[in-house]
Design a binder for these strands. Structure first.
Lengths: 215, 215
DNA sequence: AGAAAAATTGACGATTTGGTCAAGAAATTC
DNA sequence: GAATTTCTTGACCAAATCGTCAATTTTTCT
């Protein structure tokens, strides 16, 4: 226990403080941005929320926008993780179940990040770079191709893959972005793990029965 | 042409100017609020957007919050219109089709209002009064009962009605709230009527095949 | 037409905003 | 342990913020 303390401090000596404080700032910022958007969030609020003086924040980030775009960049990396479940080789039943499960799991464990992203989309996505926009587009296109393949092979009913994906995305995303609405609908104070499991079951059931060919 | 001018001015002489200007203000405000939220929208922006001097806005609305809550109240009145299609007497197939169609139609024709509402929900719905919250809850509960009835009568598969409704709501709402995302997914600049029709077809198909008992 | 009420608006004020700066405190390096 | 780099922070600024007000113009009423 005593010897263990010096080991981690050796690990990254020149970046320890910076990494810790940047993390603090970003964590406080994503929470506020996710609720009030870019224009609605004051840098003083971020400072107070993470317990650092405002001037210190400007030591790590040159502007408010820099904080915001850093968050976008960081979150976009995990954005399409769930889509990796959708592959041409896989059986649609399995692939779609896995996707819904993964997406709901992400929604539950990263409510704030999901909401931040939703807020940026509501705004029209003006802070996204052209490259980031294209990335999203390409990722979607790939998966749309997979679904098109499934349709061609008669593995699922003939449906518009684009709108099909929007259905999936919208439904799963909803539980993070509009957690309060979902809670009201379910007549609960907040969503529990059980609620997410019930959601998963219902969504998978409807989606699968809704797109698989009559057996 | 000359005689027609005096007729409409007789109609509501004491409220004409007020009504017109309040409408102008609210229209400009809902647009801005829908993009940037309450905190992110400046009253000067609203003034500029509706072509009235800022001081004039404060003649009609005492505070920024007054504008915002007026909008909430006004929009909440149309919020549950689409749900009226869901009645116990009706056949699930018809009722659900009608609901999806109505909801998508509303999303298409009232993009701004839908997005405004979504923004308020993202915020956590803090500007909603307790009565308004209860209203939403009761409306939902009624329709959940209808679906429960359908399940009991074997008209649809056994599913959790709450999550089923969330699916419907999330999917249809998506096309208004995240129009930009939908447009990117569909690889278009903006959504056309055709896109909404394709969305409707896909959603209805999946939802109906997904919940109707095997025929 | 003239009085009364409603509507308009430029100028203003207290407060808050994003961001700067320079002086000092800690940590790191040699 | 001294030099150097990194980090911290109170004080500050120009611009923007919400909201006020009193003087004026327009509309309505009789």
């Amino acid at each position: 226990m005593a010897g263990a303390k010096s080991a981690p401090s050796r690990k990254a000596p020149e970046e320890r403080i910076r990494a810790r404080n940047e993390a603090k700032i970003l964590k406080a910022a994503v929470e506020l941005f996710s609720r009030k958007g870019f224009d609605g969030t004051r840098t003083a609020e971020i400072a107070e929320a993470c317990g650092l003086p405002k001037a210190n924040i400007y030591y790590y980030f040159s502007t408010k926008e820099a904080i915001y775009t850093t968050l976008i960049e960081r979150l976009l990396q995990g954005w399409d993780k769930a889509l990796e479940h959708i592959t041409a080789e896989r059986d649609p039943r399995e692939a779609l179940s896995a996707y819904v499960a993964a997406k709901l799991d992400y929604s539950r464990r990263h409510v704030v990040e999901s909401r931040f992203f939703a807020n940026e989309m509501l705004r029209g996505g003006g802070f996204l770079s052209r490259a980031q926009r294209r990335h999203m587009q390409e990722i979607t296109r790939e998966r749309v191709r997979v679904v098109e393949g499934w349709v061609r092979d008669g593995k699922i009913m003939p449906i518009d893959p684009n709108h099909f994906f929007i259905m999936l995305w919208a439904t799963t995303q909803f539980y993070a972005d509009f957690a309060e609405v979902a809670a009201v609908t379910l007549e609960k104070g907040r969503l529990s793990l059980t609620d997410y499991e019930a959601a998963q079951k219902t969504i998978v059931k409807v989606i699968l029965s809704g797109c698989l060919p009559a057996s």
